[in-house]
Write a protein that binds this DNA or RNA. Structure first.
Length: 322
DNA sequence: ATGGTTTTTACTGCGTC
DNA sequence: GACGCGGTAAAAACCAT
C-alpha cells in the first residue's frame, strides 16, 4: 500500500485523504442542520441550533434606496443582465427576424430585402474574427451538453467563463473546441458541487473519454483552477431521487459517508462508487426496496464495487464509538 | 514500459419468494 | 425457476514512477 496522498492523486475523481475537512456549504458543522442565508444581516445561520456559520456576506442588492416607485425608476440603472453564456455576453445588436416595423405593420418587399441584407451583415460583424466564431460554437456545445446533463444555469455560466479564459490564454491551438468545451463543463460541474462522472460527460460529448480527461487536466493546470476531489455526498441526492428513495434514506446515506470520511475509508476509492454504496446501504437500513442492480444502473457502477464499498461503509459505522 | 491498485467482467453457490 | 445477493478469480483500466 502506498501512502494515502499518492493514492489519492492517482485518480482525478477520487476522494482525497482524511485531512480534508471542508464542510459542504449548506449543512451546519455543529448539528448537521440546514443553514440558511439571512440577507438582512449578511449572515448564514443554522436553522436548528442557531450557529452563525458565515458572516459578512456580500449584499448583492442595489446600493441605493428608493422611497416611491418614481424614485425607483430614476435611480435604477439596470438593463438586461450580461451573461457569459453568449459569445458577446448578450450585448450586441440583434435584428428581429419578423418583417414588421415598430408598429407591427408588415414591411414592403423592398424593405424586407433591405432588412434581410442588414441581418446578414449584422450577423457577420457580430462573429467577425476567429475567436468570436470559436466562442460561439463552443458556447453552443456547452449549452447542449449542460442541458443533456440537466445542469443548472450557473454551471453553464461557469463553464462559459472557464472557456473564455482558456481562449484568452491561447489554450485552444492543437486542441479541439469540442474537447475543451467538454472539459469546461466537467470542471464547472465539479466546482459547482454538482459533479457528473467522466462517464456521464463522455456520453453527451462528441469526444472520447481519454481526450476529455487529458484536455481537462491541461485546462485545469494552465488556468490554475483548483478543483477538489469530487465529494461522494454530492452524488447522493441525484441517485436517491432517481431511485425514488425517501429523504430519510438520503440523509442516512450522507451520514454513512460522513462516518466513512472520518474513518478515512474513502481514500483512493471512486467517489461515485462510495455514493452508490451509501445509497444502497441507506435503502437497506430504512427498509426501502432497491436492488444492487438498480443502484448500479443509476450510478453506472458495477454491483461488485457497490458490495465492496458498502461492506466497508457498514464496518466503519460499527467500529465508530458513535 | 512497469508495477501497484482499483474496478469490471464473468461465473458460481445459496436462500427465498 | 427467477431473482437478489455474496464471493472469487481473472482481465481491464488507471495512475505514478
Amino acid at each position: 500500500m502506498q501512502n494515502a496522498r499518492t493514492r489519492a492523486r492517482q485518480h482525478e475523481e477520487r476522494e482525497s485523504t482524511s485531512e480534508d475537512t471542508t464542510e459542504s456549504t449548506d449543512e451546519c458543522p455543529e448539528c448537521g442542520g440546514l443553514v440558511v442565508a439571512d440577507e438582512e444581516h449578511g449572515e448564514s445561520v443554522c436553522m436548528d441550533c442557531g450557529l452563525v456559520v458565515d458572516e459578512d456576506d456580500i449584499d448583492r442588492g442595489p446600493e441605493w434606496r428608493a422611497f416611491d416607485s418614481q424614485e425607483k425608476d430614476q435611480k435604477s440603472r439596470v438593463g438586461a443582465p450580461t451573461t457569459n453564456t453568449m459569445h458577446d455576453k448578450g450585448l450586441s445588436t440583434n435584428i428581429d427576424w419578423r418583417d414588421k416595423d415598430a408598429y407591427g405593420n408588415s414591411l414592403s418587399s423592398n424593405q424586407r430585402q433591405k432588412m434581410q441584407r442588414l441581418r446578414k451583415w449584422n450577423e457577420r460583424f457580430r462573429t467577425r474574427d476567429a475567436k468570436e466564431r470559436n466562442l460561439k460554437q463552443a458556447l453552443g456545445e456547452i449549452d447542449r451538453m449542460a442541458s443533456a446533463l440537466g445542469l443548472p444555469d450557473n454551471v453553464r455560466e461557469m463553464a462559459s467563463v472557464i472557456y473564455r479564459r482558456a481562449l484568452e490564454e491561447d489554450l485552444l491551438p492543437g486542441r479541439s473546441i469540442e474537447g475543451v468545451s467538454t472539459s469546461c463543463v466537467y470542471a464547472a460541474a465539479r466546482q459547482a458541487g454538482v459533479p457528473r462522472s467522466l462517464d456521464e460527460i463522455t456520453d453527451v460529448s462528441r469526444v472520447e473519454k481519454a481526450e476529455i480527461a487529458r484536455t481537462y487536466r491541461y485546462v485545469i493546470r494552465e488556468l490554475g483552477l483548483e478543483v477538489r476531489p469530487a465529494d461522494p455526498e454530492s452524488y447522493v441526492p441525484r441517485f436517491a431521487s432517481s431511485l425514488g428513495l425517501s429523504d430519510e434514506a438520503e440523509h442516512r446515506a450522507r451520514d454513512l459517508l460522513k462516518t466513512a470520511k472520518d474513518k478515512g475509508v474513502h481514500s483512493g476509492k471512486s467517489p461515485v462508487g462510495l455514493a452508490a454504496a451509501a445509497v444502497y446501504a441507506a435503502a437497506l437500513l430504512t427498509n426501502e426496496k432497491t436492488t444492487q442492480a438498480k443502484v448500479s444502473e443509476v450510478a453506472d457502477i458495477s454491483e461488485v464495487t457497490i458490495r465492496n464499498r458498502y461492506h466497508e461503509l457498514l464496518e466503519a459505522e460499527d467500529t465508530l464509538p458513535a
